[in-house]
Amino acid sequence: METVVYDKFSWHYPEGQNCTYNEAKRYFFILMSWLKKQELLSEEGLESFDVGIDDDFSINSHMLNNKGNLFLKQYYDKWMKKNSYSDLDTNLLDNMYKEFESK
């Protein structure tokens, strides 16, 4: 089964620019919390989130259920583009999710 990696902690810190360890951690924590709240995580996703977010963390297709994968494939890029490390907008995720569900 092909693995789709949506995003990785290390791409932001230490490999990326203008991002601290804590900013990367906050970014993934907020995104994972939202995915959990919407029940879009698979068993593996719940296990990963429970283990914790550190510099080895990633969000990949095995961590999401079918609905979660469909949603991230369609909306992750759009959401990411409209955010900064210091200004993460989960209301936008809510709105995108409403749009996704209405299709």
Binding site: D7, W11, G16, Q17, N18, K81, N83, S84, S86
Partner: peptide, 9 residues
């Protein structure tokens, strides 16, 4: 700064 997440990713 806003596009930094996208660039890094």
């Amino acid at each position: 700064r806003k596009s930094q997440i996208e660039a890094n990713r």
